[in-house]
Design a binder for these strands. Structure first.
Lengths: 299, 299
DNA sequence: CACACTTACGATATTCGTAAGGATT
DNA sequence: AATCCTTACGAATATCGTAAGTGTG
């Protein structure tokens, strides 16, 4: 029993005429006749009662009719569903991104993505850097956005840009007058930053330790926004990835170039190797990679 | 998208190997490869991720997997269902028969039928002769058993046997001594029979009127069993189709040949012309026609 | 180098359409 | 006579298997 035979059966059952059904199927009467005959033989009995002048369904044909309808509807629905997935008219992309990225850079990119593929849904998990890696590894999400992980993470990393830490100071601070600042100078003020499990904190400590700079943290929080507010209100200074600049400005803090040493680290897309992306995820991947934001390699 | 392609997809998805799946499908790897390729092209994207050394499902393939399973299960179920119908392993026959037939002759015939086709269900409607005709005409039932109807009924009549009316008298009646009896003699006793809309009653009146015999009904009922009991208790005599003989004996009445005139009428199967019987109904039809009971043409 | 999928190609089957046949109105 | 389905037969198409090709471990 083939799909073609069922389609033929339905067409004949609908018009109760081999000739008409043949036209609708773009098939000659004879071919249609053979097709129905084959179906009947495969099932072991007649589905139509033909009296040269009139075609009608046998009781078994009537029994098949609703079954055949459902079968074909289900069949076509499944086919459409897959086709839509492939043609990006349907589907869901699951994404994990570290909060600073999700908050600052992702929205405009998702806007572009959504206008290109209005029917694709996106699930964003804004979780800390380590959880991004974990979620990609566990296949909880197809795409992750994070700092470049250790090679031991066994994940594929596609760099988007290299983030460089900037200094954050109060807008009315004397430091805000300078164009740029170096670490020794910045660290003379009370330092405010994120709490320990945060990747930003870890990165800072690693880099500064390598340069024999001592980091004494005056205040710590686990929310970037809080850190920003604290700095804006003159309680101290901070340093954070450049991708937070916009957010810091909105919070009333001032950002400036920070050097000696330059703390920088690539940020990119994490994917699981040996696991092809869904068409939808691939589309978001492509949108990310080709986002104008990243074309300079830096912000 | 063909059924064969879906079967191929499922086989490969299950074993995650073209070679193994090919064996299970009795197909060469190359043919299977082409089949999957065709499916993928028809859907517009890859379903499997092949890395020469390992086959795995793409996200879209995983999406198709449950759909494909359901599709094939439904497909095979429908196919089985029809096949079973045709092979008489499943189905229902609807039958209407006049009560006297349903009660007296049908049970042994249905026993034969059921032992030949244990999985076929039978719905019996025991309704009066006119309703049998009506139900067949309205396609409420596929088969009817009744007296031969007028040609105007537009139904196909297949004779089973010719029923001849017999006399029914009390077992202890003097009349019970004779081997046979004629109408004038019978009618000297009070006559008990069915009420007017009944076909038995109508037949009697028609036949006797044609012979200038006057029928005066002493008692009437609408149940044959009641008539039998009344006769058995000596309240009068009756005449009824030979098919009731057995039942009358069990009620304690005595039956004997009745002549001058012989009232007889064919009994047979009613079917709707131009409407093929279901395989199950045809089987019951055949069982009825070839029942040994009717081989003599009379009871 | 062995293994597993893909591609190429010739052989086989299937399917199709034209034309002839049969039956009914 | 006209219509409609079936059957017959040659042609086009599709499918299959063998064998060669390609990439990976």
């Amino acid at each position: 029993m083939t799909a073609k035979q069922i389609r033929a059966f339905l067409a004949v059952a609908q018009s109760l005429s081999f000739a008409q059904a043949g036209e609708r199927l773009h098939l000659s009467q004879s071919a249609l006749s053979l097709t129905i005959k084959a179906l009947e033989e495969s099932l072991g009995g007649r589905l139509f009662s033909r009296t040269t002048r009139q075609v009608s369904l046998t009781p078994e044909g009537e029994a098949l009719l609703p079954l055949a309808r459902r079968l074909l509807v289900d069949w076509d629905n499944a086919e459409d569903h897959l086709r839509q997935r492939f043609s990006l008219q349907q589907g869901r992309v699951t994404l994990a991104a570290m909060p600073s990225f999700a908050c600052n850079l992702l929205p405009p990119i998702l806007k572009t993505f959504h206008s290109a593929h209005p029917r694709l849904n996106v699930t964003i998990n804004d979780v800390i850097n380590e959880q991004v890696i974990e979620m990609v590894r566990d296949r909880k999400v197809e795409l992750g956005i994070a700092f470049e992980p250790q090679p031991a993470s066994q994940l594929t990393f596609t760099a988007l840009y290299t983030d460089r830490f900037v200094a954050v100071v109060a807008a009315d601070s004397p430091l805000a007058q300078c164009d740029s600042i170096d670490w020794p100078m910045l660290l003379q003020a009370p330092f405010i930053t994120l709490q320990r499990p945060s990747t930003v904190r870890i990165l800072l400590e690693e880099h500064l330790a390598a340069c024999d700079l001592k980091l004494s943290v005056a205040v710590e929080s686990h929310q970037l926004a809080t850190v920003g507010r604290l700095v804006a209100n003159g309680l101290g200074v901070s340093a954070m990835p450049a991708l937070c600049v916009q957010q810091m400005r909105e919070l009333g803090a001032h950002c400036m170039t920070l050097s000696h040493p330059t703390v920088e680290r690539p940020i990119g897309i994490l994917t699981k190797p040996d696991h092809e992306l869904s068409a939808a995820a691939q589309a978001l991947f492509d949108t990310l990679v080709s986002a104008p934001l990243f074309s300079a390699g830096r912000l």
